[in-house]
């Protein structure tokens, strides 16, 4: 008895997939092609992105790990923070931005750590100066140190000021559909509700609110904060979210680079499942094999 060698097996398998695909293409024509192969890109402020995973660059062991995790994630947009330059203390300290191939990424300066309108607006203006007129920013105005929940009142005010000043604002908010819609009306280019508190890894705590926000929206909705593992990301994407921004879920994993890859796949899988449309839920079983023709 001889077993096919692995190479034969993979050839057989790929032959089978190709045949199935060709048959399916003949039957379903262009519908199938467009569903599986040509998902429309994620468009933020007029720029198209293939990846729906956006990642933060904080909390990694070192710059090399950050670089490899970003690579494994496939992310095209990465967040950065604006902070005081070290004066004297550690002059030779390696800066993350020197360690990354920056031309590969769209940088997303964020206002993390800001608790009021003034600090958030000031941070965005400094980022614009630092990055030579760069307009895309992530606005977050926090309200409370324990939960890091957004201060939505200050967030709305800051969003208005930044939009009026010509910024393209991606805004972090809570999972309140009314506030999300208001931020869209102000002119934010993307609205980013939390799934759970920042850095908590609790997953999607309020899927129905996220769903309502997605259904109401005319701008991209990205879950920002709270995912802990791959399944959380898949759930968010299956709800119809346009993307996910995360940092801790990758950086605080035991193997960050592997988790970055897992998140990439979960987001792609969740997105395809959303586009494919899941089967209806039924309370009782429904056999997959025909009852007719049984010989027992």
């Amino acid at each position: 008895m001889s077993f096919p060698r692995p190479t034969d097996l993979s050839r057989l398998k790929s032959c089978k997939i190709v045949t199935q695909f060709l048959i399916a293409t003949l039957i379903y024509g262009s519908t199938l092609m467009s569903d599986t192969n040509f998902d429309s890109p994620l468009v933020i402020a007029g720029k198209s992105y293939t990846s729906r995973l956006l990642v933060g660059t904080g909390k990694y062991k070192d710059n090399a790990e950050t670089r490899l995790a970003l690579e494994a994630s496939g992310a095209e947009i990465i967040t950065i923070a604006i902070r005081r330059t070290n004066i004297g203390q550690n002059p030779g300290e390696p800066n993350l931005l020197d360690a990354l191939p920056l031309d590969k990424y769209t940088l997303l300066p964020n206002t993390a750590g800001c608790y009021n309108v003034e600090d958030a607006v000031r941070t965005c203006k400094l980022a614009r100066e630092l990055l030579d007129g760069h307009k895309l920013v992530k606005l977050e105005v926090l309200g409370d140190e324990k939960t890091l929940f957004p201060d939505t009142i200050e967030t709305l005010k800051a969003a208005q000021i930044l939009v009026d000043d010509g910024f393209d604002v991606m805004v972090y908010t809570n999972d309140d559909p009314l506030i999300a819609k208001e931020l869209e009306n102000i002119g934010c280019v993307a609205v980013m509700p939390l799934a759970a508190p920042i850095g908590s890894g609790l997953g999607i705590r309020n899927p129905y609110n996220i769903l309502t926000i997605v259904e109401n929206a005319n701008v991209p909705i990205l879950v920002d904060a709270g995912v802990g593992t791959a399944s959380d990301s898949a759930i968010a994407m299956e709800l119809g979210c346009d993307g996910i921004l995360m940092n801790t879920a990758i950086a605080a994993a035991k193997h960050p680079i592997m988790m970055a890859s897992a998140m990439k796949k979960a987001i792609e899988g969740g997105r395809e499942a959303y586009l494919a449309g899941r089967m209806p839920r039924k309370r009782f079983a429904s056999a997959s094999s025909p009852i007719e023709g049984t010989f027992f």
Binding site: V55, G56, T57, G58, K59, Y60, N63, T66, T79, I80, A81, I82, R83, R84, T85, I87, N95, L96, L97, L107, P109, N110, A112, L126, A127, L130, L131, K138, E140, Y172, L194, I198, G199, D224, A225, G226, L245, M246, N247, T248, A249, A251
Partner: peptide, 12 residues
């Protein structure tokens, strides 16, 4: 005088 730079950071 404030001198700032970009560093690694997320939100989450």
């Amino acid at each position: 005088v404030e001198i700032v730079q970009a560093i690694g950071g997320g939100s989450d």
